[in-house]
């Protein structure tokens, strides 16, 4: 398979917006498939009657780990095979209910002054189909400079 690296440290500056992603609408198939992977049988993620009775919610909600996985997929796709997701912090601010979408965005806010230590920091945000924020976060990404490739390989 051909190695395609589209993003380089040298080309980025604070203010650069990463390509956003939209996932969903969330279905019971999505949440059950995730529950199976995680072996997480909490009714919160698939049982409409139970969440109304027990949690006072109008519908089941996506697992936080599932939402994080989709956000991380957006980042690891963008940094390419020679990039490295070094750090991510996430704060969940509103649930994703059945039928909701997850729209993720990221913007570069900081860049290493040292090309020998090529990292950038991004602010992350997730919103639902109504524009309501569902999560915020921050990440540190290592990117290859054009002159010296950084694979993170061991």
């Amino acid at each position: 398979m051909k190695i395609q690296q589209d993003v380089y440290f040298d080309d980025l500056e604070p203010g650069h917006e990463l390509p956003g992603r939209e996932y969903g609408p969330l279905t019971i198939v999505d949440t059950v498939r995730w529950a199976g992977l995680q072996e997480n049988w909490q009714h919160l993620h698939y049982d409409r009657d139970w969440v109304r009775e027990h949690d006072g919610l109008r519908a089941f909600i996506a697992s936080g780990a599932y939402r994080q996985a989709l956000l991380m997929r957006m980042l690891t796709d963008w940094i390419g095979p020679r990039g490295w997701l070094r750090k991510i912090s996430i704060r969940h601010t509103h649930p994703t209910f059945e039928g909701d979408t997850m729209r993720y965005s990221a913007v570069v806010v900081k860049k290493s002054p040292d090309p020998a230590d090529p990292w950038i920091e991004c602010e992350l945000e997730g919103k639902n189909q109504d524009g309501r924020q569902i999560l915020t976060g921050r990440c540190t990404l290592l990117l290859p400079p054009k002159t010296r490739l950084n694979t993170g390989a061991t």
Partner: peptide, 30 residues
């Protein structure tokens, strides 16, 4: 990968991962 659609060759293809200097395919970070 089925649950997330995250079909990154780094976690699916040993040869691809080796071509980048890794000893085999990586676990997805999550």
């Amino acid at each position: 990968v089925d649950a997330t659609g995250d079909a990154n060759p780094l976690w699916l293809d040993d040869d691809f991962a080796r071509s980048l200097g890794h000893r085999g395919r990586l676990l997805p970070p999550l």
